[in-house]
Amino acid sequence: MEIKLANVSDAGIIHELMIKAFMEYKDEVPPSSALDETVDSISTSLKNNEMALITYIDKKPVGMVRFKLKEDGLYFFRLSVIPEKQGQGIAKKIVKSLEEYAKHKEVPKLLCKVRMTVPKNINLYSSIGFSIYNEEIVHKSEGINIKVVSMLKHIGEKPCESSL
């Protein structure tokens, strides 16, 4: 397995991985906004200080994550592993790579937001040392509200005992 920092030219790969992974949320109310993104929108984001990591197995892309460095930490989103490779620890390895990148950049913590309707993702992050620090309701168009939790992991801390 190889995890590489993406280039703007990788926007098509990032988009394809994200769409494959997020299709499972197409019937959510509302569907994930990830499904509305395009290669162009991702390319534009990568040109404007967004970064991404792409994971390859046997030179084939299988996962990715997008992220931004902010004052309070490294904020990541759209963590994606193609369905046929889920459950193999790839997402955890991607987050570990983010952690190493954050350490290298002397960033104190990793941050993400997760829909409360997706407990498997909350459990994934909790199992590798993240904790919930905020709950909020995101107001979407047409009066649709999405309950989300904000999660964080301080860099350098060991995972909580329950994940050992």
Results as ranks from 00 to 15, higher is better:
Pro83Gln: 00
Ile137Gln: 15
Gly87Trp: 03
Gln88Asp: 14
Ile19Glu: 08
Glu16Asp: 12
Ile3Leu: 08
Asp72Gln: 09
Ile132Tyr: 05
Glu37Lys: 08
Ile3Val: 02
Ile137Asp: 15
Ala21Gln: 06
Asp72Thr: 00
Lys109Ser: 11
Pro119His: 12
Gly89Thr: 02
Asp72Trp: 10
Lys20Arg: 11
Lys140His: 15
Pro61Ala: 09
Lys147Pro: 13
Val8Glu: 10
Val29Ala: 15
Ile122Glu: 06
Val107Tyr: 06
Ile155Leu: 06
Glu142Asp: 15
Pro61His: 06
Ser162Ile: 04
Lys103Gly: 11
Leu79Met: 08
Val148Cys: 12
Asn7Pro: 03
Val65His: 07
Glu100Cys: 12
Pro30Glu: 01
Lys153Ala: 02
Leu17Ile: 06
Glu28Ile: 00
Ile82Phe: 05
Asn145Val: 11
Tyr25Trp: 10
Gly89Trp: 13
Lys96Arg: 09
Glu135Asp: 11
Met1Cys: 08
Lys105Leu: 13
Ser80Val: 00
Leu74Ala: 00
Val114Arg: 06
Val65Lys: 07
Ile54Cys: 04
Asp40Ser: 13
Asn48His: 14
Leu98Lys: 12
Val81Lys: 03
Ser150Val: 03
Pro30Gln: 06
Tyr25Phe: 10
Ile82Arg: 04
Leu124Met: 04
Lys158Gly: 07
Ala21Pro: 05
Arg78Met: 09
Tyr25Asp: 01
Ile57Val: 05
Asn123Trp: 10
Tyr25Ser: 01
Asp40Leu: 10
Pro31Arg: 03
Gly73Gln: 00
Lys70Thr: 05
Asn48Lys: 10
Pro159His: 05
Ile137Asn: 14
Ile57Pro: 05
Asn48Gly: 08
Ile54Ala: 02
Leu17His: 04
Ser33Cys: 09
Ser45Arg: 14
Gly87Glu: 09
Leu69Cys: 04
Pro159Cys: 03
Asn121Tyr: 09
Thr38Gly: 02
Leu98Glu: 10
Cys112Glu: 05
Tyr125Gly: 01
Pro159Leu: 02
Lys153Met: 02
Lys140Pro: 07
Asp10Ala: 07
Ser162Val: 08
Ser163Asn: 11
Val29Cys: 13
Phe22Leu: 02
Lys140Gln: 15
Glu16Ala: 09
Ser80Asn: 08
Asn145Thr: 13
Ile122Phe: 12
Pro61Arg: 00
Val81Phe: 03
Glu157Leu: 10
Glu28Leu: 13
Gly63Trp: 01
Asn134Phe: 09
Tyr133Phe: 14
Val8Gly: 09
Thr44Gly: 06
Val62Arg: 00
Ile90Thr: 00
Glu135Met: 10
Glu100Tyr: 14
Glu84Ile: 01
Ile137Gly: 14
Glu135Ile: 11
Ile42Ser: 06
Ile122Pro: 10
Glu2Ser: 10
His104Trp: 13
